[in-house]
Design a protein around this nucleic acid. Structure first.
Length: 276
DNA sequence: TACCAGGGCCTTT
DNA sequence: AAAGGCCATGGT
């Protein structure tokens, strides 16, 4: 059923060491992909549905033209960034070397800034299954229905005139007010994601922190996962423990430029390689 | 300063 | 089966 058809499917030659779908799509940076019982992954990004399958030496993008691969999925999976060089650079550090060896194929996706902002607003003080459920419902209720199946992530204008009652049933809890504050800021011009994209990191951080419900941790996540600021460095409770255990004197300043990528390797390592 | 607010998931009991 | 811990931020 999941055979490769060269007329409709695109096959990318790549190893799991370069791009590991299971880890990259399920490490908490995005919330709209899932692994199916047949092993394939299915999700929606930028209003485009995608099914993919990873093999030992390639990834098949189903029903994907070469054009779509180049314009949508190549940037989405950050395939223009040289992760091998970054891994080498970070591996001079013992802990980083172990973390990278444990899961070398992690990449930072280039997601939509708005989707990342809303997703991480919802993610605070929350767990991944519930985050996914809330986002799924948000898309079903306010996103554009796709021709194939499923729904796009909602546009800001589909949300900015809503009231809290309209969000009941999404399971947002007290985060509903944060979401409304966020989209109303966009509506009123007090928040301009395009402008933030062009700002120096510190200024972008300050701008994001104006949004109710965006604190230091959420802001770093949005910068890293939504704006691809690889020097953003989210610190949650897992990272706090990791830093205390492995970097009591502080995380190496030399890694500053790619600290966000280092964070992903380290985060995954301490969560899933305990005792190794 | 310390604590509580939705609520669901996960681990431990 | 039941209980308790967890989570990031803003408000009191």
């Amino acid at each position: 059923m999941l055979s490769f058809d060269p007329n409709t499917d695109y096959r990318l030659s790549i190893s799991p060491q370069e791009l590991d779908l299971a880890v990259t799509l399920d490490c908490g940076q995005c919330f709209r992909f899932q692994q199916e019982p047949d092993g394939s992954f299915y999700g929606i990004a930028f209003g485009e549905p995608l099914r993919l399958r990873q093999d030992a030496d390639s990834i098949v993008f189903y029903k994907t033209s070469e054009e779509d691969f180049k314009t949508i999925w190549k940037p989405y999976f950050d395939l223009d960034t040289d992760y091998a060089a970054i891994r080498d650079f970070l591996s001079v550090d013992d802990t980083m070397a172990k973390a990278i060896a444990f899961a070398p194929g992690i990449r930072i996706l280039r997601q939509s800034p708005f989707e990342a902002l809303v997703s991480f607003l919802i993610s605070q003080n929350n767990n991944i299954p519930r985050i996914k459920t809330s986002i799924q419902r948000l898309c079903e209720q306010f996103g554009r229905p796709l021709a194939e199946d499923g729904f796009a992530f909602p546009e800001p204008e589909a949300l900015w005139n809503l009231e809290k009652e309209d969000l009941a049933g999404l399971g947002l809890g007290y985060r509903d007010g944060y979401l409304l504050d966020c989209v109303r800021r966009i509506r009123d011009g007090r928040l301009d994601l395009n402008r933030i994209a062009a700002l120096p990191l510190a200024d972008a951080r300050t701008a994001l922190l104006q949004i109710k419900g965006v604190g230091v941790k959420v802001a770093e996540c949005v910068l890293l996962f939504g704006f691809h600021r690889l020097d953003a460095f989210p610190i949650d409770t897992w990272m706090k423990k990791a830093l205390a255990a492995h970097y009591p004197a502080g995380f190496p300043a030399a890694f500053h430029e790619v600290a966000g990528i280092a964070q992903q390797y380290l985060f995954h390592y301490i969560r899933f390689a305990a005792g190794q």
